[in-house]
């Protein structure tokens, strides 16, 4: 397996996630698509680290930071979704047109 294979896989995954972010009406679906895009970036980091810099681990460290930040992002995002859902009774983003809940 060469580096190109992994890069192609991550490109396809990122494109699918981008399509989900652009077209999903459901806000939870948008959050899930963002997770797909972050995972595509993680595959790139690990693959470049493995093939271009064997013996160094900064890429792995970056992936750990990204995973942690994704967890934080999803926790805050879902808490916000629940808070908005309690007020508006809707999970579709076109209903979210006021800042004051």
């Amino acid at each position: 397996m060469t580096l190109s294979h992994y890069l192609a896989l991550s490109g396809v995954l990122f494109a699918i996630g981008l399509f989900g972010v652009l077209t999903r009406r459901n806000v939870i679906g948008i959050l899930m698509s963002i997770e797909l895009m972050l995972n595509a970036a993680n595959i790139n980091f690990v693959a470049f680290n493995r093939f271009l810099y064997p013996g160094r681990y900064e890429g792995h460290l970056t992936v750990i930071f990204i995973i942690t930040l994704a967890a934080a992002e999803v926790v805050v995002g879902l808490a916000l979704v629940m808070a908005i859902y309690k007020n508006l009774k809707s999970v579709y983003v076109e209903d979210y047109n006021i800042l004051k809940g």
Binding site: M1, Y6, L9, L13, N39, N42, I43, V46, A47, N49, R50, H60, V63, I64, I67
Partner: peptide, 14 residues
């Protein structure tokens, strides 16, 4: 599946 890709790249902790 992405975790499997990480394993195939030899990064055990990730």
């Amino acid at each position: 599946g992405v975790a499997g890709i990480f394993a195939s790249l030899g990064s055990d902790f990730i």
